[in-house]
Design a protein around this nucleic acid. Structure first.
Lengths: 148, 148
DNA sequence: AGTGAAAGTGATATACG
DNA sequence: CGTATATCACTTTCACT
């Protein structure tokens, strides 16, 4: 499915505020709300739109620390880890990557003690490298139409 | 602000589907829709809720590649970079981190040529390390209440 | 802080350019 | 693929608890 100009405008609205009403989107992009509704439904069905979510401040939620933890899995431990990682509440994001390391995780933690305990859980799966997040320079920027 | 059990239930709904109606949330958590509305407003005002967004599939949008690019900024180049990075459409996320490197970016790219061109733009700011994302093991998992 | 009811607004289905 | 209309659902406000 290719995304036309009108759908990109709708996606811009939805990425900025997923709770914007179809009527409001319609006003901004110049069509009626049933038309907006139909276009959104098609984008959901075709997989262009993968869902709608809410940013909850980890800090306000009681997590004082954010970190990126890289894992270089031991022989035969990658698969078990890929199952195990789904059970960690601390992991908000996890990628498999190319290169010397196999995994990068974005984790939220209450404090240093919590970080230490979390890393201890990983040592059976591989070697870890931890980078503390100091600030979030760009927060989940919109996906924009690629320049041709 | 501390988050009570009811608000955590509301946040769970909103994180799973930001476009869920207040009425539907009310049915699930056991209060009326005006009460849901009021609680959500307070969480928005206090910063617990930082916004609502839509996941647009980068692949469907025309980006075939996702990568994590780490930057080790040259002397005096970190500040200029922090300004410049905001202008890159390819960067969907950017963190300042501790350690040998200063910056990690999550970027979406059309193809290898695009990746090459993008990295070339960075060489004035510092040394880069690129890790191609193979798969997204955990996608923006919910923030959950930390176990006490 | 939550409920219940009234008024306004939005969503959805259908008929039709 | 879009609009227009009608019906139904949802949001918002407010008096009350």
């Amino acid at each position: 499915m290719s995304i036309d100009t009108l759908n990109w405008k709708i996606l811009k609205c939805l990425q900025q505020n997923a709770r914007m009403s179809n009527a409001e989107i319609g006003r901004r992009v110049g069509i009626t709300s049933p038309a907006v509704s139909e276009r959104i439904k098609k984008m959901e069905d075709s997989g262009v739109i993968q869902g709608y979510t809410t940013f909850v401040s980890p800090f306000e939620a009681g997590y004082q620390l954010k970190a990126l933890i890289t894992l270089r899995a031991f022989m035969g431990m990658l698969k078990p880890f890929l199952e195990k990682v789904k059970t960690y509440d601390e992991v908000v994001n996890c990628y498999r990557i190319t290169g010397n390391e196999n995994i990068v995780m974005e984790v939220v933690l209450k404090n240093q003690k919590h970080l230490e305990a979390f890393i201890d859980q990983l040592i059976t799966y591989g070697e870890t490298k931890t980078q503390i997040v100091l600030s979030h320079v760009i927060k989940y920027s919109e996906v924009k139409p690629p320049l041709k």
